[in-house]
Structures are given as C-alpha cells and as structure tokens.
Write a protein that binds this DNA or RNA. Sequence first.
DNA 1: TTGCAGGGGTCAA
DNA 2: TTGACCCCTGCA
Length: 296
Amino acid sequence: MKLKEYCVIEENDKIIVENVHDFNPVHIFECGQCFRWVKQPDGSYIGVVRDRVVKVRYRSGMLEIHNSTSNDFLDIWYDYFDLGRDYSEIKGLIAKDEIMKKAVEFGSGIRLLRQDLWEMIISFILSSNNIIPRIIKIIDSISRTYGKKIDFEGKSYYTFPCIDGFMNSDLEKLEICRAGYRCKYIVKTLEMMEKTTVKISNFQELGLEAARKKLMEFPGVGPKVADCILLFSGIRFDVFPTDVWVKRVVEELYFGREVSFKEIQEFAKSYFGPLAGFAQQYLFFYAREKKIGVKK
DNA sequence: TTGCAGGGGTCAA
DNA sequence: TTGACCCCTGCA
C-alpha cells in the first residue's frame, strides 16, 4: 500500500513505514507536547493513543508501529504523526538566524502531533503551574481511575477517559490524582463540555482570537494553555505558547533583556508568522534541554 | 529526620 | 499588578 511517498508493509502484529524522515522519537515524545509516551529500555516508546496501545521504534527512515495495521496507518497514524507535512521545508524556512539554526539542528526530529482535543484541554489545564514529570503522573492516575484498561505485552495500560468516562464515574475520585486546586477546574470544565458540542471543526472555522477566547471560557485555561491546546491538537500552527522556558530563551537570545508576554507574542508573529508554532517547539526543546536562561 | 525554598500559569482581589 | 493556589523535588 502506498500513501503519498510512504510505503507501508504489514508484518505480523506491526507495520513498517518506509521513507519517513525528520522523525526522532526522543525529540517528538520529549519536547513537551505529549504526556502519554514512555521510553522503554530498548529505546522504543510505548504510548496510549485513543483506544489503543502501540510501540514505536524508528531507525534510518523506517518507522515501526507495533500492535497496528495498515488500516490504522490511514485512519490514525498518518495524521497523528503529521506525516503529510514536509518538516525539512519548515526547518529551512524558520532556521533564518544562528539561534534558530542551532535550535532546529538540536531538535531536528521534532514533529507536531495532532492529538485529541478533549485530551489536550484536560492535559494542559493540568499543566499550568506544574512540571512535566508531575503532569505525566497526574494524567496516568486519571487514566487509571476513569479510563479503560488495555493489556499489551504483559502490562496494563489505560486509555485517556472520554467525557462519558468521567461523567459516569465519581468525580470526587479526582482528588486521588493529586492535581490539587486544578481538580475543581477539571470538574467545572467537564460540566461545561457536557453541555456544548465543541469540535475541532468548530475551532478551524473560527479566527485565532475567537478560538482562543472560546477556550479561555474553560476555567484554568489562560493564554498559554489555550495556545498549547490549539497547537497540539493540530488546530492552529500560528500560535506561540509562551511559558517560562520560551520567555527565557527569547529574552536571552533575541532581546538580551526582560520583555513582556505581549512583546514576545508580537515578535513571534512578525518573525515567524504562520510557522510560529513550529518555531516555538524547536525553541522550547532547545531551551529546556540546554537549560537556557536558568539562574545558577 | 525535618523543614524550607523553588518551580510553574491562572484567577481574583 | 500581585499574591494565593498545590504538590513534588532537592538540598541544607
């Protein structure tokens, strides 16, 4: 089977996708955009996406997805891994100064995942005023409490719960997930979600400001969280989520002084334009791994 | 062993 | 604009 430039071979329980470039699992799964992929001792990653568990391995142009079929490739993985996009071209366009050249080279295998909108709303509400290892723990705990169990390679995994999964269960149990004051944001958000029909298509029809405004109606969603939701569910790529790491790296490498959130947003818009979201990911990964701007 | 500082966006005063 | 919110980690 062929889809665009890819050749997909089905073999036992796995598929092998040939001719995949600009793909590095470490960069993709550890650049802060997702919380449900776990590195295995052999270097592969196991992740829960929608209602399935898969294992992903990549070497020299070959992407292996275990526990999957070629139909899944068409239905899920092609979009999820954003395989229709030429990241070499994007990298060429945004690596227009020495800083971006370094950041792009450092995270050369980053791809933006197109993740589930509901999952992103809840996940990024949990991300505010929080650190990545803890966010991962909380989401894992929520999935164990409210999701469905799936066994894979002798271990149990849990899907991220759908709205019904939450609402049909006891929301008081959220407290055991150690999310602190964010629990009440989640409960309120779920109640609001139940009453509305918010879909990705709704957001794609809206302009950027209207989409942001709509997301910020949910409690716990401010400007940064709203931009993360839009970017990581593949709705908008012209946003520049500005957290402490991005602020630090832009201040240190571009301005050489302290700047406001608004100044950074204006800079990103004029400098990176429609590719701001990609630039943000390379910069974030670079800043965090290299600890740029951290006071010693 | 204990206790305190630090990290991290949003909300409400 | 500023302090409070919550939990975990690291380090005296």
